[in-house]
Amino acid sequence: MTEKHSLVLQTDFGLDDGAVSAMYGVAKTVSPNLDIYDLTHNIPQYDIWTASYRLYQTVKYWPAGTVFVSVVDPGVGSNRKSIAVKTKTGQFIITPDNGTITHIAKHVGIESVREINEATDRLPGSEKSNTFHGRDVYVYNGAKLATDNAHFDNFTNELDPKQIRQLNIFDPQNHGDEVSGTIDVLDIRYGSVWTNIPFSFFEKDNVQYGDYFDVVISCRGKAVFEKKIKFVKTFADVNLGEPLIYINSLVNIGIALNQQSFADAFDLGIGNDWKVDLKKIETKGE
Rank of each mutant, 00 (worst) to 15 (best):
residue 2 T to R: 12
residue 3 E to V: 15
residue 4 K to S: 07
residue 7 L to F: 11
residue 8 V to T: 04
residue 9 L to G: 00
residue 11 T to P: 07
residue 13 F to D: 00
residue 22 A to N: 11
residue 24 Y to V: 04
residue 24 Y to R: 12
residue 31 S to T: 11
residue 32 P to Y: 05
residue 37 Y to T: 06
residue 40 T to A: 04
residue 41 H to V: 03
residue 44 P to L: 00
residue 46 Y to V: 08
residue 47 D to P: 10
residue 48 I to R: 11
residue 53 Y to R: 12
residue 60 K to R: 09
residue 64 A to C: 05
residue 67 V to L: 02
residue 68 F to P: 08
residue 73 D to G: 05
residue 75 G to N: 14
residue 77 G to V: 04
residue 78 S to D: 06
residue 80 R to V: 02
residue 81 K to F: 02
residue 86 K to T: 03
residue 86 K to G: 12
residue 92 F to H: 07
residue 102 T to I: 02
residue 102 T to Y: 10
residue 103 H to I: 03
residue 104 I to G: 08
residue 107 H to Y: 15
residue 108 V to T: 13
residue 111 E to N: 14
residue 113 V to L: 09
residue 118 E to F: 09
residue 129 S to M: 13
residue 130 N to W: 04
residue 133 H to Y: 13
residue 133 H to R: 09
residue 149 N to A: 03
residue 156 T to I: 11
residue 158 E to D: 02
residue 159 L to C: 14
residue 165 R to Q: 09
residue 166 Q to Y: 13
residue 167 L to A: 09
residue 167 L to Q: 10
residue 171 D to R: 14
residue 172 P to D: 14
residue 176 G to K: 14
residue 177 D to I: 13
residue 178 E to H: 01
residue 182 T to P: 04
residue 189 R to L: 14
residue 193 V to D: 15
residue 197 I to V: 11
residue 199 F to N: 06
residue 200 S to D: 00
residue 206 N to M: 06
residue 208 Q to D: 06
residue 208 Q to P: 02
residue 210 G to W: 14
residue 211 D to R: 15
residue 213 F to Y: 10
residue 213 F to M: 00
residue 216 V to P: 11
residue 219 C to H: 05
residue 222 K to W: 06
residue 223 A to V: 08
residue 223 A to W: 01
residue 228 K to T: 15
residue 230 K to Q: 04
residue 231 F to R: 02
residue 235 F to N: 10
residue 237 D to M: 13
residue 238 V to I: 11
residue 241 G to F: 09
residue 242 E to T: 07
residue 244 L to I: 12
residue 244 L to D: 05
residue 245 I to M: 02
residue 247 I to F: 00
residue 251 V to H: 12
residue 255 I to E: 05
residue 257 L to H: 08
residue 261 S to V: 00
residue 262 F to V: 07
residue 263 A to T: 02
residue 263 A to D: 01
residue 264 D to L: 09
residue 269 G to A: 03
residue 270 I to N: 02
residue 273 D to C: 10
residue 276 V to S: 01
residue 277 D to Q: 15
residue 280 K to G: 14
residue 281 I to K: 02
